[in-house]
Design a protein around this nucleic acid. Sequence first.
DNA 1: TCCCAGGCGGTAG
DNA 2: CTACCGCATGGG
Length: 288
Amino acid sequence: METYVLENLDSFNLIHIFECGQCFRWNKNEDGSFTGVVKNTVINVIEQENKFVFTGVCKDGNFQEFIKEYFDLETDYSIYKEKLSKVDSYLKESIEFGNGIRILNQDLWECIISFIISANNNIPRIKKIIEKLSLNYGEKIEFNNKVYYTFPTPEKLSKATVEDLRGMGLGFRDKRIFNTTKMILEKQIDLDKIKNMETTDQMREELLKLDGVGPKVADCILLFSLKRMDVFPIDVWVRRVMNDLYIHNENEEKVNKKELLNLAEEKFLGLQGIAQQYLFYWKREMGA
DNA sequence: TCCCAGGCGGTAG
DNA sequence: CTACCGCATGGG
């Protein structure tokens, strides 16, 4: 068991980070701490008097480096916030609201599967399905006398038949998960190659070949795992907030996607991904 | 009960 | 190329 304590972290709020919709495997405990499974490690984080205490058993490498990498602690979010706050008063307000958001460095494989599951689904159920997959196909780890499961590897998940997957509550996404797992396992799509590609467009083109990965899911993967800050995943909430703020179309479903992308590019200038996160979180938490 | 969910794939026009 | 539809399931 290792502990890492950090003081005076800028732009770091546990609720904002874990509940802004980017990740699915973190849960809040009664003491206000959060526990999550990251790669082969279970991590607990708690905020105590302006200090953040990270606890975990790190099986791959140095625990402190692991935390710094995963929580994106090398990135200075004040620069992002400063730029975006100048866009207009809406951005300013959304940033004040989601002040402590940070984009986690999530595992590419896990991110792909998780966001295929997210299609036409709600967050509580997405989390349930991912837990069930992990329980059935992941590795068991104990932490503080509790049992956790790692996210299944492609090898392990490939043992599941389409029927098995249907039994996990995946619904119509069963075949998509099955096919994508196979494509990745057989290296028809090489994830390491994607990580090393030059441009966002090259990465997106490759991701779109995976079954169940369309424009929205690809952009989520690009933002949440490949750290492409210039992508702008458009879901119902983002469409809603962009329409309310800038377009004022009576029928928000009719708002053209290209129009939204152009607008986002023009306004947020390479920081569409970050802007999207603040706006998404703000809109979803504030409601209506 | 009924509507909806961080959409996608397929098909028709 | 765009427009539409069906899809499984369960949360609220």
